[in-house]
Design a binder for these strands. Sequence first.
DNA 1: CATAGTTTGTTATGCAATTCACAACGTTAC
DNA 2: GTAACGTTGTGAATTGCATAACAAACTATG
Lengths: 216, 216
Amino acid sequence: MSRRQAVSPKCISRLSLYGRLLSTGVGSTSGRVYSHELARLAGVSAAQVRRDIMGLGCSGTPNTGYDVQALGSIITEYIHTPEGQRVALVGVGNLGKAILTYFSHGSKTRLRLVAAFDTARDKTGRVLHGCRCHPMEEMSDVIRRENITVGIITVPADVAQQTADALINAGVTGILNCAPVALQVPARVYVENLDITIKLETVAFFARSGRPQADG
Amino acid sequence: MSRRQAVSPKCISRLSLYGRLLSTGVGSTSGRVYSHELARLAGVSAAQVRRDIMGLGCSGTPNTGYDVQALGSIITEYIHTPEGQRVALVGVGNLGKAILTYFSHGSKTRLRLVAAFDTARDKTGRVLHGCRCHPMEEMSDVIRRENITVGIITVPADVAQQTADALINAGVTGILNCAPVALQVPARVYVENLDITIKLETVAFFARSGRPQADG
DNA sequence: CATAGTTTGTTATGCAATTCACAACGTTAC
DNA sequence: GTAACGTTGTGAATTGCATAACAAACTATG
Ligand SMILES: NC(=O)c1ccc[n+]([C@@H]2O[C@H](COP(=O)([O-])OP(=O)(O)OC[C@H]3O[C@@H](n4cnc5c(N)ncnc54)[C@H](O)[C@@H]3O)[C@@H](O)[C@H]2O)c1
Ligand SMILES: NC(=O)c1ccc[n+]([C@@H]2O[C@H](COP(=O)([O-])OP(=O)(O)OC[C@H]3O[C@@H](n4cnc5c(N)ncnc54)[C@H](O)[C@@H]3O)[C@@H](O)[C@H]2O)c1
């Protein structure tokens, strides 16, 4: 259970990707996979794959590669808790609804999106894809009762900070922020920003000058 | 027009963020802004801000900071073309519709989302927020005619690669990929991946172990 | 059993990006 | 005018990350 050493967010992101590749039919014939195979599918180098796996207490055998099942399990157990962490989403608008739909149908992650929140009365009280939308006043209670540790923010930019404050107050320690603002949070809280406009402007820039190959 | 030197995607992303901050009421009273103010709002260090700006042929004056208007213009002109690049979106599903709505209403970028594509007949032919949804057969023609250089992929994962191929064939040189696969593209094409599941799993991981502070 | 051929685990190397530190400069106060 | 303060611009130091490289290990084969 104890983490071997501090790993970077980028490393965790790659492990998450390897995990998905392993669970979606890689090496399904042999039951085994080489580092360079995973590398090609993940868009990274083979050395990178081996190095990432090294940090997990590895399991590969030379000349045969990795056991798909075993490696998948190790990665999943490293990234996730046995029960799967519980997630809440705030702001059931266009983007919020898309994410809600995705995580109840399309996604295979161990994470569970178990509650949604909104201010609009036509949203609250309803149940979308098995996930109830609560009014904001119930946030603190629901997050504690449901043991929620992660929040997704899909509210308008001008209320994103207060939404983050409310989530943190209620006990959330990780936030995926889809609003285009940099949140101010205490050091113990981890934030990732998912800013579509910035990503798109970056793509547009390199669509012209075309040099580097990168990712996020 | 000529770029001073090769800059990293992360640098461009930060410049994009500074640009937005400058255009949304930073230092609106004085008309000027300090590097440490931008830094706090962007969630980076003051030295980082100054260094990023340095690469643009800078304009700040000691003790007074930067002229908001001037710096904003310089950043915009560096990141964008004068006319604004044109963008197409493929896959008008839950996520695709949310993005379409956002870029016709909520966003202030110079980029223009001017065309959408889908296979489903109930999507094609309709006009959403001033953006027509075409059938896939018209892609090549429309992209050339409309001078589109950037594509957004919001189709299911199993058709993302063929969608990318089609976009590239039609002349697109930058792709924002929202499907959870690593696309194989020629070196001249620039790809950014926007993988919500990976981002969320990364947040969940550090919501427990809580160490680093990072971003993407 | 020995030999050839691959792939892993890991260490060393190189590179890029961020931070540090400070001189130069402008501004303000008196 | 001049002294004191605060910020910029930028070379140097540092950190972190990815690539390269290679010894050890395993399989296969005759
Ligand atoms: N839709 C996109 O593709 C897209 C792209 C980039 C960024 N974003 C950002 O994501 C966020 C949401 O975008 P959207 O298109 O879904 O907007 P939206 O207007 O469709 O949805 C916003 C939702 O938040 C709710 N809300 C408003 N104030 C609230 C509050 N104080 N507490 C709780 N809920 C509140 C509203 O009732 C609404 O349901 C915005 O910050 C937007 O900038 C969206
Ligand atoms: N919705 C989310 O929040 C979310 C989160 C993470 C990842 N994603 C990814 O984004 C993509 C889209 O997700 P979604 O929820 O919008 O799915 P969706 O099923 O709602 O939309 C998919 C759209 O693509 C169209 N399509 C199907 N095949 C096509 C083809 N060959 N060419 C052109 N169009 C085609 C469909 O008609 C549909 O309109 C998926 O790859 C999904 O994994 C979505």
